[in-house]
Design a protein around this nucleic acid. Structure first.
Lengths: 345, 345
DNA sequence: TGTTAGCACTCATTCATTGAGAGTGCTAAC
DNA sequence: GTTAGCACTCTCAATGAATGAGTGCTAACA
């Protein structure tokens, strides 16, 4: 038995109806509100087939049908025709970017949460591909050096390191020159033993400071790398959907969103195929995260001009409005692209 | 009619029992589990009096009694004898402080959330009392200056400003010297028109850069001031208490905790009397925040060595274990004090 | 005068029962 | 292949009885 044209139409009608109402949908409803002009009995037969094929399920005998994960998957893959879906307020927002990436990300997330009525999460960009642009040491007090590291895209990292040795102003100046000459333009990944050895040679007596500084830079960058910054917004939106908000489930879900460890996998798992602007949909158990088996997640990889890449995700009930979410995300990505291309000109 | 000794004992018994069970407590329970050796009938008479006096209420006829806000207030004010209550893991934690204040705060909050099983929130320190320690301008690229500001306590703020004028290395050096000479040791509040005018005079042709830098510094500091940093932890703990976790309430509460605007009031309202280490208890409607009328909030003002002050709060159901929470907070404050005094030696 | 036993009464909660409604599957007729 | 009709299933909401916890009051007691 195969999906013929009529079955597909019925399936689509079922899913769309369910997306709207959240109630199991019966044969009579489809018979009345579709343009197929078939009696409920006929629909029933077809539904029976669709169930056998695994696209829909019955919560219990004598209830209507609801889409299965497979059904949703088919719907998302085959039946959605994206429509344009402008994200409001986008324009004004992006203007403020430049040096406050986290702020921008948070605002983006909030924007999406408000626009879609689902929960949003966004991962901070990962920096290991990003080039060093500027490094500066300065002494703030005896025995403590301030290290300021600026990455492409004007991401700024600070840290304070303790040094036992006494450094003169001239020492610091020289170190600064050395650091900038040797490291600017490199990515973290490119700072290998070779580079380090060469620097140490040039630093002479100050070699150990070089070590400390380098590890501190690595550390500063890794800080956002390891415990990957993830921002969530609109988590309380999940209370809007009864199937997620009752009791235990809500608790677990909110908890998952609060403790970001699990989310990390969610946002980074498709690392290999991390194509820019590609939008992924994970339905139910496709997410691999236990507490999200009643949810769907839509993710997109963003890029902010200078190679700063991260992932943005929208979490909602399985019966989320995939169409709207996908097109909203797509539109957001495009607007981001536009804005950042313009800036670079 | 007044609270005599026996009434107090009964009230205490009622409250303690209710704190444990969360169920209305009846006369028979008190009669059995207190050392008063009174029959339930006598207790009933006393309870009737206590109700008339406003310390307890009946959810409905023929239910037991539960404490009223007034009852809790009396309990908190008069009946708690604090016991020592070490916060575990404290020691290892504080070591990491130094330059990552936000991280420390988050960890503290988490620690408290885990220790108490309530939700925790903590406000980042406010900086207007904090002195500038070090300022540095550097050029990262054409037309853009990086401003690094270090405050007492090694709080570091960065920002990037655009400058139209072309600045030589020497200009920058001079500006740095001027800035540090003029501003180091001052608090933001102390940077008045007088200081600014004097600096502009000295800067001569570069006066407008001084303006830009100063406003950027003010901005950088205000960023954490205005949209006051507030971190929450353990918000999902509220699901552990049925009286908070059912339906609408949980939603509103979590929402309040997510959108930090309202919390600001909560943490800063006692500004005037902001005595260090003072612990405040707000019961039910005493919090002024609508969505928290079923909660109690315990706050304490912390101080991290260098005059960095903020507030930490614990949010739980009205029947929270005040005793434990208060003593835990107290102990935490003491340990913080100890640690930071030691560091300063 | 304070304390207690006893009793009638109230109210929430639980459980089973019932009926309505929605929806199905199957069969027989078109 | 489509449809009307019917018996059947299951959920849900309403009903009401039983239960039990707890009270308030009264009368008796020390």
């Amino acid at each position: 038995m195969e999906l013929d044209d009529r079955k597909i139409k019925i399936l689509k009608a079922i899913i769309q109806n369910y997306l709207e109402t959240g109630e199991p949908v019966g044969s009579r409803t489809i018979s009345k509100y579709s343009d197929l002009n078939l009696s409920s009995a006929t629909i029933r037969n077809e539904m029976s087939d669709l169930e056998e094929l695994g696209y829909i399920v019955q919560p219990h005998t004598s209830a209507g049908r609801i889409p299965s994960d497979k059904g949703y998957r088919f719907y998302v893959d085959e039946l959605i025709r994206e429509k344009e879906n402008e994200v409001t307020e986008m324009r004004e927002l992006v203007i403020q970017r430049v040096d406050r990436v986290e702020l921008l990300l948070k605002q983006l997330a909030k924007l999406l949460a408000v626009n879609t009525n689902y929960a949003t999460l966004i991962s901070g960009p990962q920096y290991h591909q990003t080039k060093l642009k500027f490094i500066q040491l300065s002494r703030v007090e005896r025995g403590k050096l301030l290290v300021v590291t600026v990455l492409e895209g004007n991401i700024i990292k600070n840290s304070i390191i303790r040094v036992d040795a006494e450094l003169s102003d001239e020492d610091i100046l020289n170190l600064n020159i050395l650091l900038n000459n040797s490291l600017n333009g490199l990515t973290i990944g490119q700072i290998n033993l070779d580079v380090i050895t060469r620097m140490k040679e040039q630093a002479g007596a100050r070699g150990q400071i070089v070590d400390a500084v380098l590890s501190e830079i690595a550390e500063a960058i890794r800080t956002n790398e390891e415990d990957l910054q993830i921002y969530t917004e609109g988590t309380t939106n999940i209370f809007k959907y009864p199937e997620l908000s009752d009791g235990e489930k809500a608790s677990q879900l909110i908890s998952t969103l609060e403790h970001k460890e699990l989310l990390k996998e969610l946002l980074t798992e498709d690392d290999g195929a991390k194509k820019k602007n590609e939008i992924q949909v994970y339905i139910g158990s496709e997410t691999q995260v236990q507490s999200m088996n009643d949810c769907s997640v839509v993710t997109a990889n963003y890029e902010l001009g200078d190679g700063l890449r991260g992932t943005i995700g929208i979490i909602g009930p399985k019966r989320m409005d995939y169409d709207k979410v996908v097109s909203t995300l797509r539109s957001l990505m495009n607007q981001l692209d536009d804005t950042f291309k313009k800036e670079e000109r």
